[in-house]
Amino acid sequence: MMDETLVQGSLDTLRAGALQVEGHGEENLFVELLHHVQDSHELEIPFLGHIELPQFTPFEIAGLTIDMSITKHVFFLWFAALLLCLLAIVAARKNRKHPVPTGFGNLVEVLVVFIRDQVVVPNMGSGGIRYMPYLLTTFFFILVMNLLGLVPFGASATGNVSTTAGLAIIAFIMIQVAPIRTQGLGHYLAHLTGGVHWTLWPIMVPIEILGLFTKPFALCIRLFANMTAGHIVIVSLIGLIFVFKSYIVAIAPVGFVLGISLLELFVAVLQAYIFTILTAMFMGLGMQTEGHGEHVESGH
């Protein structure tokens, strides 16, 4: 995990705490600990310290201040994308060369087959195969970003609500595009009325429109909260060592951190899977000809 970083950071905290008035230390520690799960403008490099990431001057479009600076999370977003590109290309090359996939190529193929047979086809039918590239990219991208948070000096871009919001916006577009493409705009709009008597439309239409936004919103918050929660638990457990200022006490938190890290490893895969299957399910809901009103909202 980010233990070394944490140690470094916590030492800084202690130093800062020592300079400040006693008693404010713990509050300070908390702020300092949170710093490690937050975005920042600097990148921590093992044994070399920090490097400042380039910052651009924010600009305004339609009243929104947009800062396109390369932050830590943007860096890891790109890092994950590049890593994924590399791994996927390696896997595809390997599988093309050997008729029977082995090793890493086989691992990737197992996941691809899993997404196709357990996620896409049951939820979207055979018509969902055309959205396979989108769902595969979603699954693997989120997976790699999640796992990068478990690497020392790494960070999860998905632990930032803006990243998950970006992914959710794309999911929102796909959830609308899929039914329009299969059933046409008319059917899609008819679906918004909920199939009730026209006198109830003034109530039904706003609810249905609200429903359109709650789905991706839930996707966004679920992924962000799960990834952040795990990091905060680990950071807090490590923080206990510095609260008690004892090596003996350190044994317990380190043991706990080990357990939580293993759990995090599982959660990283699980959340990537949940984001993908829910997106597929929401896309599939609108693609089926029948079955109105089944707004399955399940999650973690």
Binding site: I66, V74, L77, A165, I170
Partner: peptide
């Protein structure tokens, strides 16, 4: 919310 990061995410994803 950091709109810059949202934009970067969307661009990167696409």
């Amino acid at each position: 919310i950091n709109p810059g990061l949202i934009l970067w995410t969307i661009v990167t994803f696409i």
